[in-house]
Nucleic acid binder design. Structure first.
Lengths: 250, 250
DNA sequence: GCCTAGGTCCCGTGA
DNA sequence: TCACGGGGCCTAGGC
């Protein structure tokens, strides 16, 4: 069920929003407005035509005509109020922790609608980093021949190392897994783990690919890179490789 | 200027979207639909009521009833097509690099509107990390009395150190600046820089606050923490402190 | 083009 | 509650 108003007065729009807020409906409002934000940072945005979205959980999004990201926003859990004052509609949103405030001042509302989105569907996502861990833990040969893994997600003083193990030569090993191109950060992470140990550990960084700088740093530190074959792992997960999913749905 | 349709047929909605795409208008569409995504990852989302937004630059956002983040999306620059097939409206978006595909299959469209958002306003944001660097470089007394800074953003073998300098006692100093609470990573970073040097350097970590673990590690390493007073720096920038901005606008 | 660093990142998880 | 690390992160800037 949709309620909507085309070119409402600011009073009508304000009443409309307050009604929607009471029943925690989603509101989409297109109009001419300015935005102020103060909190972790601060910003001002002069008047212009934009979209403002209020969700039932108290999140607010302001979208301009371009780009993925909202220009201003509040995450869920905010307290939202709306009123008309001095001929402007003011939408105010307050976040408690951290203290953050967002205010949109409307000169005009072009269209506004509200609805309770009935949506019980499960969102299913492809394999995550955690999924790869599981498979690799059961199949350490993907990382290195003769490698025995002794623990996973082991907490150290400086973080959580993905795998610990013992290689064919009997050396203690730390393995850091990335499911996408490993950058210098990944090398630094691995290095932190190894440096934190009193005894000697080999370091293995395991990823589908690695940036040039990361590889150079890795080699300088004396650690190893192991290329991860995602398609082979996908097969073990009975997950369709990219091309097959594509063929099926697109 | 707004065009809108309430409870259109899928053919009407499809024509409406294609018209809007031609002139690169923004489109907001509320309906019952499912979403498939394949690319860097993959996901499927069964049928449910949601909002789909298409922007003139080729970005696509799918929002459910809760949360800041879109459940599915494409960043700007995508090629978007819309058609009706087997009694469903299919919105297809293709990203070139990386190759990514998003498909929304509509059972129903409840409301749809399109508009060219006229919005020339400048977005003005509060001070960024770079702004703080500049001010601190010109006012090293905020970091430590008698400190002379000799360079900023100096590249080392293991990263880029924010400042190098010489303290009142004539010691060489590395300064790492964080705009928000410093964690163990910041300490490790500073430590890496100092360890990479053949000669002795003092380490100063400069941030508004520091986590307990980070402070304990910092002290163990023999480095110093300097509290950064954001309000005092704001004044130098002729930027209003939090409370004043709040008083003025809220 | 690749890669790094920052973000009002958001968000989940574990201590 | 705080702190840490992942993310289809996105986006800007450097090379």
């Amino acid at each position: 069920m949709i309620q909507s108003l085309l070119y409402p007065s600011l009073e009508e729009a304000s009443d409309f929003i307050n009604s929607a807020l009471r029943v925690k409906n989603l509101v989409v409002c297109c109009g001419l407005f300015s935005v102020e934000y103060v909190g972790r940072s601060s910003s001002t945005l002069g008047a212009g035509e934009r979209i403002l979205i209020i969700k039932g959980d108290g999140s607010v999004l302001v979208h301009r005509s371009k780009g993925y990201e909202p220009v201003n926003w509040q995450p869920s859990g905010c307290i939202i109020r709306c009123r008309v004052e001095d001929g402007k509609m003011i939408l105010f949103s307050e976040r408690r922790r951290p203290k953050e405030f967002l205010k949109a001042v409307f000169d005009k509302v072009y269209i506004i609608f509200s609805t309770s989105l009935v949506d019980e569907a499960k969102f299913l996502m492809g394999p995550s980093e955690e999924t790869f861990y599981s498979i690799l833990f059961q199949h350490p040969e993907f990382i290195e021949k003769g490698l025995r893994l002794t623990s996973r997600q082991k907490p150290l003083s400086t973080g959580v190392v993905d795998f610990t193990g013992i290689d064919e030569g009997g050396n203690y090993v730390f393995v850091e897994v990335k499911r996408r191109t490993a950058g210098v950060d990944a090398v630094k992470q691995l290095d932190r783990y190894i440096k934190s140990q009193p005894t000697r550990f080999r370091g293995i960084l395991c990823a589908p690919s690695i940036t040039k700088q990361a590889l150079s740093l890795l080699e300088k530190k004396g650690y190893s890179f192991r290329k991860l074959d995602l398609n082979r792992i996908s097969k073990l997960l009975t997950i369709e490789p990219f091309e097959e999913t594509l063929d099926k749905h697109f």
